[in-house]
Amino acid sequence: MTDARAITRKDLMGVFWRQFCLQASWNYERMQAGGWLFIVLPVLQKLYKGNPEGLKKAATRNLEFFNTQPYLAAPILGVALALEERIALKGDIGGDSVTAIKVGMQGPFAGVGDSMFWFTIRPIALGLGISLAEGGNILGPIVFLLVFNVFHLATRYYGVTETYKLGTGFMSSLASGGVIQRISEAASVLGLTVLGVMIAQMVSIPFTFKLGVGEAAKTFVSIIDSIIPNLEALGLTFLLWYMLRKGITPVRILYLVLAFSLIGTFFKFLG
């Protein structure tokens, strides 16, 4: 497109920087809606230069409900901007197509983002950071931030620039190929494997009591370890997971664990 109002690389960089403020006015009613409009507003103002009515209409439709994993808003922004540009310059598609693409993409992309970032990259990066930080080493938090944010920034940067370039064609191929679900599942495989390691290394129930009499008495923990090491950690995790599934809130489970620990130390079977 040769129109002076067309979106340039500079405009896309503006979108890249503004997207860090996506959640600044997060609310229960329309969630990231205010952030979405904040991000695309300068581009809309350029596209509708000298057309205040068109700008107002575009701004209003970009203030509708929106919510996704914050980093994965980037590819949705790229596609939506490609559409907005076409609406403003050619006018051969309706404004409701932007809404449709946002509604269609926010759910699956939230799923991909959650499994990639919250279930996989963050736990792994934190695991690395924690093991380095042991003993008070400041390298721990630094490594965590570096590892996590390489993925974070790459997603936000290429998310906006690449999907804008590829426009809508890319997205429909993504959705039809079931690629979104494939990425989710593959990321979850990695996430669960690492989670298994962390359960073994970071959870424990410090039982103190012994079974048997006199010289033959063995601590309960050593008996567990002779079956499968850390089995009690795995059992506890599954018990708490089961309680969560039954709809017991995390706060209540927290209090239950606290109560159990206090009873345990009072009667001296934990310590």
Partner: peptide, 20 residues
């Protein structure tokens, strides 16, 4: 008791992860 709870509570975080 709080010390013991601190050793057990990571299981809650991991349980939340598995759940999600």
């Amino acid at each position: 008791g709080f010390n013991v709870a601190g050793k057990m509570l990571p299981a809650l975080g991991f349980g939340m992860l598995i759940n999600m």
